[in-house]
Structure formats: C-alpha cells, structure tokens
C-alpha cells in the first residue's frame, strides 16, 4: 500500500521516523542539559539578578547570541571537525546530534531565560528574606514557580528542533525531513513530499499538544 503510493518501502518510512525521534530526543536532552545552566546564568548574573556579574553575563550573552546568529545549515558543516572529535564521525544520525545540540542549546537558554524572568521579583525577595541560598532560591522558588512556562519553552524549542532535523540530511542524518528532500524533492515524488509534510505536521501537533497539556496541568492542577 505505502510502497505503491509513495514509492518507498514502509520500512524506510518507519526508519526515517525513528531517526527523527532519535535526533530530536537526544539533542533535546543534551540541549536542555546545556540550556538550563546557560539560561540560569543569564538570569542570575544579569543586572539586578541574584548574583549580578557583568563579566559573566557579557560572556554568556555573547556566546548565546554568537551561536544563534549562525544559520543551522552553516553550523552543521562549520563544526564538523568538532563533531568528528566528539563522536568519531562527521556523518550519520549520531553525528547530526552534535550540531543540533549546538543549535538548540542557546535557543533553549533564551527561552528558559525569559521563562525564569517571568517569576515575580517579589518571590525572590521573599526567598532571600527567608535566608535561602542562591541554590535554594533556584531549587525551591525559581524553577517551581516557572515550571509551566518552562514546559512551554521546551515545547517551542522541540518544534524548532524538529525543523532543524530536516536539514540534518545534509550530513546523512536521515529522518523524515531528509526523506522529503532526497526521495521527494530530488526524485519529483510529490506524493511522498505531501506525506512527509503531513507526518511533520502531526509531529508538531503532537509535541505542542503534549506541552500544552502538561503546562495546563501544572497551572490549574486538574
């Protein structure tokens, strides 16, 4: 059925889907791991922050801006030597994760920064008045209070990341987006193009739906 309409095997389609999820999952994981401390650093060291430090803020802010200003497709090839150093190869799904992390971490850092900045300054003041240390302020006040907003930030980040995985095909990353470009676009297979677009739409709907549901649950406790 799939073979006749789309002109590729069902296995190929499923494999691409799994590659997308694989790239998305790992790069989101590592990206968050980097993005949270970056976002926190931006919030804590900014002027008027709990640990206001102009030098650290200037450097972090600069790095985030710098990486974010490189288009992903260029980032992909630009950091290839680093990718090779890190995972031993420049191509393949695994290799695609490295530039994806570079792409998403500063983006998440910005999203996390704005989520954390939504926390009312009064809450931080109350925390300080209670004698909370910086770590305790983050642990007991900042993150719990920004939880729902952080979930939405991660949702937005994931969707941005999904778009970037399509370009990972350039270095043989595979995935749904790659399928659309190599099999759909280059072979004039319009049915496949359409199918991949629909799959990507479903992916986005699914991610956004889950994100919204979790955020709503955190906000309304239902």
């Amino acid at each position: 059925m799939i073979e006749t309409i789309l002109d590729i095997s069902a296995e190929k389609l499923i494999e691409s889907g799994i590659q997308t999820i694989y790239m998305l999952g790992w790069s989101l994981f590592f990206g968050t791991l980097l993005g949270i401390p970056l976002g926190l650093t931006l919030v804590l060291t900014r002027k008027g922050g709990i640990k206001s430090n102009q030098v650290i803020y200037f450097i972090t802010n600069g790095i985030v801006n710098l990486v974010r200003s490189v288009p992903f497709i260029i980032l992909l090839v630009f950091i290839a030597p680093f990718t090779k150093f890190l995972v031993g190869t420049r191509i393949g799904t695994k290799a695609a994760i490295v530039p994806l992390v570079f792409y998403i971490a500063p983006y998440l850092a910005r999203l996390i920064e704005s989520s954390l900045l939504e926390v009312k300054p009064g809450i931080i003041e109350a925390a300080k008045a209670m004698g909370a240390s910086t770590f305790e302020i983050i642990r007991y006040f900042l993150i719990p209070e920004a939880k729902a907003s952080l979930v939405l930030a991660l949702t937005t980040g994931s969707i941005g990341l999904l778009g970037a995985t399509a370009m990972a095909g350039t270095i043989g990353g595979g995935g749904i987006g790659d399928l659309a470009l190599t099999y759909g676009y280059q072979k004039f297979n319009n049915a496949l193009m359409l199918a991949t677009v629909i799959i990507l739409i479903l992916f986005v709907q699914l991610i956004q739906g889950i994100g919204n549901a979790i955020a709503k649950k955190l906000r309304t406790h239902q």
Binding site: K120, G122, I123, E125, A126, K128, A129, M130, G131, F141, P144, E145, K147, A148, L218, R219, H221
Partner: peptide, 16 residues
C-alpha cells in the same frame, strides 16, 4: 534572616 519574618503587600507566595 531566619530569625526575622517578613510579610509583603503582594504576599509573594508560590501561587501554583
């Protein structure tokens, strides 16, 4: 600071 309590005009509680 733990020996000094403080209350605020806008309460500053964790709303959620």
């Amino acid at each position: 600071r733990k020996e000094i309590g403080m209350v605020f005009q806008q309460f500053n509680l964790l709303e959620n």
